[in-house]
Design a protein around this nucleic acid. Structure first.
Lengths: 136, 136
DNA sequence: ATGGTTGCAAACAGTTTGCATCCTG
DNA sequence: CAGGATGCAAACTGTTTGCAACCAT
């Protein structure tokens, strides 16, 4: 590579990883790899996807992030937000994090049929506030 | 069951597609492509995966089947069972279809935050009856 | 014979991994 | 200078598609 023009500012302690996890934490909801990569590119022009995947895997192993598969697409989200679910807007496609839970199924509950529930996942689909306001 | 004599027991108008959709309908829950393929192989020894995928795509276009992504794996399920959800056993890995719904969110409901709910999806994780009985 | 169906393999998209290089300490 | 981090490209896995052979009508 050619030497360059100006020294780029970089995070300390880790290299691009910091930026990636920061973006993940700052996100309004789970992000796809392309989306995360593209957001990171504005700060790290030479970032490769491999690094994004590697970082995500690391974060998952550390329990700092986890994967959410929605409509067949893999999204990543920072951990530590406690119990929550997601809302996928059918108009703008964005995914939001919901704070309230619509089901009462504490771990240990025996569901009709004899299924012992240990955890549950809920995803709501519809119109987000903005899209609902824009059109009916 | 079909007549055992000479007339080959093949559906009219389609070839292996019939077998595949029959297996899908008979399944106890959504199936993965490898699983569906392997079940079909017992009846159609030369069946290729491509045909399975092609058939599934056709069935989806006809609204006779739909995809269910669970833990990042794509599963296929016959349609027409009305509103239902799934239970994934963490021990045996099998996925079951539940008949009762644990949430009360009729379409049109406005969820806290202003999200207009059009549909919802629920997945429960835990021990299926068999696995729960086998071990605590 | 004709058109829809299928198997095989190549093509593809998303994700992971090997390797040489670059960076931080 | 050493060890970890990164980019690039090859390797993989799951899914789709092109094409010639195949089957039922």
């Amino acid at each position: 590579m050619s030497a360059a023009a100006s020294p780029a500012p970089r995070p300390k302690g880790t290299r691009q990883r910091g930026v990636i996890s920061r973006l993940l934490i700052a996100a309004e909801g789970p992000l796809s790899v392309p989306e995360l990569h593209s957001r990171a590119l504005t700060e790290l022009p030479s970032l490769g996807v491999a690094t994004v995947y590697r970082t995500l895997k690391l974060l998952q192993e550390q329990g700092a992030a986890h994967i959410v598969t929605l409509d067949g697409e893999n999204l990543y989200e920072a951990s530590g937000r406690g119990h929550h679910h997601h809302f996928a807007c059918r108009s703008c496609g964005r995914v939001f994090t919901l704070s309230t839970c619509p089901v009462a199924l504490p771990p240990g509950t025996v569901y009709p049929g004899g299924f012992v529930v240990e955890a549950h996942e809920v995803t709501l689909y519809g119109q987000c506030p903005a899209c609902a306001a824009a059109q009916g």
